[in-house]
Simulated assay, not measured.
Amino acid sequence: MTRLTFQQATVAAIRDEMRADPGVFVMGEDIGRFGGPLRSTAGLYEEFGEARVIDMPMSEGTIAGLAVGAAMQGKRPVVDLMFGEFLALVMQQFLDAGAMHYYSGGTQRVPMVVRAKFGVGPFHGHAYDHHSWLVGVPGVKVMIPSNAADAYAMLRAAIRDPNPVLFMEHMALYHAGKAEVREEAPATPIPGSRVARQGADVTLVGSALMLKRALRAADALEKQGISAEVIDLRSIYPLDLDPILKSVAKTGRVLLLSEAIGRGASINDLAAQLAERAFDDLKAPVMRLTAPDVPTPFARELEAAYLPDETRICAAAMQLFGNSS
């Protein structure tokens, strides 16, 4: 076991996969001697050199397109896309990568990972959460870890996965303290939903920063006599629904949390599935708490008002009891 930050855990995962498999290499902007944005590739250039840590020109489409071609030739590229809003520049490449197995009659795989940083945090800017765009692309997996241990295990599993993976890294978690990480070969497939806290009265579901805030809200709700179970989604697609269904069957109430704006958010699909598959277990309607339908603000005061926090999560959870039958 080693104590690592979230950022150190992601770098360690890539380093260990590069050591284990000479077909793994990294591409992106400023990832070589500079060490990547927010130190996202720190030390990799010094160990593996420019042949496997490749500084690319400022053309995200070119980088992602090259990754698709390399993956089809048996390599396992890891693309550092820098920030989540740049996903708009690589959508066509993701469409091709996701569909290639189908197009080829099952003969072709595209094992590539695209890393993208997102979320409000200490760095200002680049906060947009656009992972929902990729949830609608067949063949693409979407991962959002909430802690260093998961970041390490899930990124190693993503690199080994035969499918294209979008790996989202929240900037508020990047350097926010160290945690115990077991540096060992990952279990496959990529881990799904997990129960982060046991409870009996209401289920809170989120990922990344929303998971952290849900846990703090659960502590506050406990003082008011409400026992909240908290579930970390981790894998947005494919969605591991069983732990959520089991939790809702126990609590009868569910609050879904998202840093993305509510319109088009990936949790909307989860809400629909719960309405279809857990209707008889529900004591109140499925509730969502998301960012409003406005651009992510830059000012700290507006940022604080923009995202669901512990107070708003607690208030929404209490509302579920008011709606109960």
Rank of each mutant, 00 (worst) to 15 (best):
Y237W: 10
S193A: 15
P243A: 13
A214T: 01
R194H: 03
P186I: 09
L215M: 12
A185E: 10
Q224S: 12
V181S: 07
A228N: 11
A196H: 01
V195W: 04
K223L: 09
Y237H: 12
V230I: 09
G177T: 03
G192N: 05
P243R: 15
Y237R: 14
D201C: 08
K246Q: 11
D232E: 11
L241G: 06
G177R: 14
V195L: 13
Q198D: 11
L241E: 02
D240T: 02
L241F: 03
L241R: 01
V202Q: 00
E183V: 15
R216V: 06
M210D: 04
T203W: 04
G199Y: 15
Q224F: 00
S227A: 09
D232N: 11
L209H: 08
P189L: 14
R182F: 09
L245G: 12
L215P: 15
S193N: 12
S207W: 00
R197L: 04
G177A: 10
P189D: 13
V205F: 09
S207N: 02
E183A: 15
L211E: 06
L221A: 08
G192E: 02
T203S: 08
V202H: 04
A228T: 03
A220M: 14
L215I: 13
I231S: 10
R216A: 07
K223N: 02
R182T: 14
A185Y: 05
Q224Y: 01
P191V: 14
A228M: 08
